[in-house]
Structure formats: C-alpha cells, structure tokens
Design a protein around this nucleic acid. Structure first.
Lengths: 111, 111
DNA sequence: TTTATATGCCTAGCTAATCTACATATACGG
DNA sequence: CCGTATATGTAGATTAGCTAGGCATATAAA
C-alpha cells in the first residue's frame, strides 16, 4: 500500500551479491552485513529478499554453496563464485554501468 | 522464462518520465521517443510499460493530462508536471543519486 | 534466571513493476 | 493499396522484493 519503500535499487540485488562473494566466500548473513557496511547503510537487504536470491543464484549456477563454520563458531552456509558466476558478474557490471549512466544522463538533461 | 531482459533499470521509469515531462509538456509516444533518443537507445520503454506508468503517475497527482494536437496534426494526450510532481521528481532524483552511488561504490570495491 | 539482542537459516503470501502480445485508428509515402 | 510511423490502450504473465512469520543458538543485560 505504501507505494514502494525499497531499500535497494530494484534489479541490482543479484549483481551486488555476486560482487560481494567475488571478494571472498561468505555466508548469507555476512553478505547482507557487508552490503550494508560498504554502502554506509544506504542499501539494506531484507532476509526475505536475501535467501531467495541466494538460492536463485545457486540454481543458475553462479554461486556454489557449502556448509562451514562462521567466525563466531556457528554453522553457516558459505557461498563462493563459480566460473560462470564470474562471467555473469562481469556482464552484469557492464550492464549496470551502461544503464546507470544513461539514467543519469537523462536526469542531468537541461531543457 | 527468459530471465528478465529489461530495457530499463527497474524502478527508474517513473523518474525518467517525470524528468522528460519537466522539460516541457509532451504526449506518451513522444516521451518514449525522447528517452530513447537522449539515452542513445540504451533505454527503451515498451508501450505496455509506458501507458500504465502514465496512468499511474496521473492517478498519483504527479502528472496532468489533456488532449491536444501533436506536431503531426494528430490527437494526442499531453502530459505536464504538477506542482506535486515537481517535488516528487526532486525527491526521486535525490534518491536515485544516493542509491546509484552506493551501488557503484560496491561494484568498484577492490578486495 | 529470565530476557533481550545478535547471529544464522528458512518459507509463505502479497504487491507492484515491467514485459509480451494483442487491439484500434489515422496519416503518409510508395 | 499497402506498409510504416504515429498514437492510445488493455490483458495476462512473470518476477523481484517486501512483510511477516518460524526455528535455533550464543551471549549480554537485567
């Protein structure tokens, strides 16, 4: 009802996750934390968005998952980037650059 | 099935339309053309996205519509920005800047 | 001791945006 | 006369992300 109050730019979650995982294998909870930290709390991934996204990316073969032990000593599922995932990250990053530049160009247009 | 092949950055259509209309009243077809032109064909609005969006924005009070005559001599519905619409454009533009910078920051992060 | 907070995983169900694909109509150039 | 560009629209499907829940453990605070 609330006319969309997104904590993300729609459509960018996948590329964000791929990028964070490319920096080193990490578990879901940690991925969300990193996105929040690096973006200085501008971008916030809800858990109801995060986990389905991770499963989606794994199913598409871009991420690989395996259980391991988190820094805290607790069990956690660690995700790492596959070779195909790295390709995908590159292509999605290029696409982001292209599209975001275009949007910015329009928004900066003076009449 | 085709894993989303968007011609837009999801969620940016509204602000794009508001911006184009802010440059001067224009009809739907023309709005789509301008977006395509300014972005050098990077951004392309499908008609099935365009018209529902226009009706949405009008219903929310950000656009005002009135029938008039296009340059071609044909009847067309011209949209112009309301006062509230201008506010909305400002706020959505600021939001875009904030979010897109955050996304770019993450994608540029070196490990 | 009980309780709150942080960590960690997950699903169900909803909404909203966008897409594809259609339908309609006029003007113009060949 | 026919194809293309202009111009408006809807129906139906898909999909992403959200809210709101559930489960479990560890630790800090009360």
């Amino acid at each position: 009802m609330d006319a969309q109050k997104s904590d993300l730019l729609q459509g960018t979650l996948d590329v964000l996750i791929l990028k964070i995982v490319a920096l080193g294998p990490l578990h879901g909870y940690g991925i969300a934390q990193r996105i929040r930290q690096i973006s200085k709390a501008v971008l916030q991934v809800q858990q109801g968005s995060l986990y389905p996204a991770l499963h989606r990316l794994e199913k598409r073969g871009w991420l690989r998952a395996e259980w391991g032990e988190a820094e805290t000593g607790r069990e956690a599922k660690f995700y790492s980037l596959t070779k195909v995932g790295r390709k995908q990250l590159e292509s999605e990053t290029a696409n982001w650059d292209r599209l975001s530049e275009a949007v910015t160009m329009i928004l900066r247009t003076a009449e």
